[in-house]
Design a protein around this nucleic acid. Sequence first.
DNA 1: AGGGTCAAGAGGAACC
DNA 2: GGTTCCTCTTGACCCT
Length: 217
Amino acid sequence: MEESDHEECNTGLCLGLGGGHVAKKVKKQKLLNKPLMACFDLAFELSPKGEAMNVYNNNHNKKGERLSLERQQNYPNATYSTDSENNNNNNKDSRKKLRLTKEQSTILENTFKLHNTLNPVQKQSLADQLNLKTRQIEVWFQNRRARTKLKQTEVDYELLKKHCQNLSDENRRLKKELQELKLVQSPLCPQRTPSKPKMCSSCDQKMLKLNELENNN
DNA sequence: AGGGTCAAGAGGAACC
DNA sequence: GGTTCCTCTTGACCCT
């Protein structure tokens, strides 16, 4: 990287001042009217509140350090920078949080509405359009799908809860109704007990004989 | 200070 | 076997 490559940068970070806290201080003085700029592998943006932030972390992260070579090979587009690239900054405050601009968020949201997954070509073109890494686009879509799913789960849970409540109410109502029916059929209400069927005299006699036989047996 | 949000890390599953 | 996705977790930042 030539020094002239970042002549626009007045954050101080190019001079070895690392970390978001430094950037935060510097931003208030110098960056208020610069929505997006890049310097080395660092890109800065203003948050909705006007704070300057490191757009993409440079992963001196404790975990980032153990990132396997294999994964780096799997994701060649990802900015898994090695310490040698950015080692001017101290490793402790590495993982800076990216804040997408309103415009970036809007475009991502609109794209997500059209298709919630992207093919590599779409990913690349979106990355170019938004000045982000394809890996960032990929991560955003992953997280967005996760949020959608979580929201849907919450909605489903509420629906099931309501349904369950309805079933409980119905069950209670039916139990009550059954109780009332039992009460109505009890001996305490003789008028409701089934009356003896009327029989003609011949049938009556036959019944009598049957009863006698049964009793004899 | 503590909780919420969200980008990113990590690891495993699924797919081709 | 490489790539992408899912899921859970982590950590930075914001808000109250």
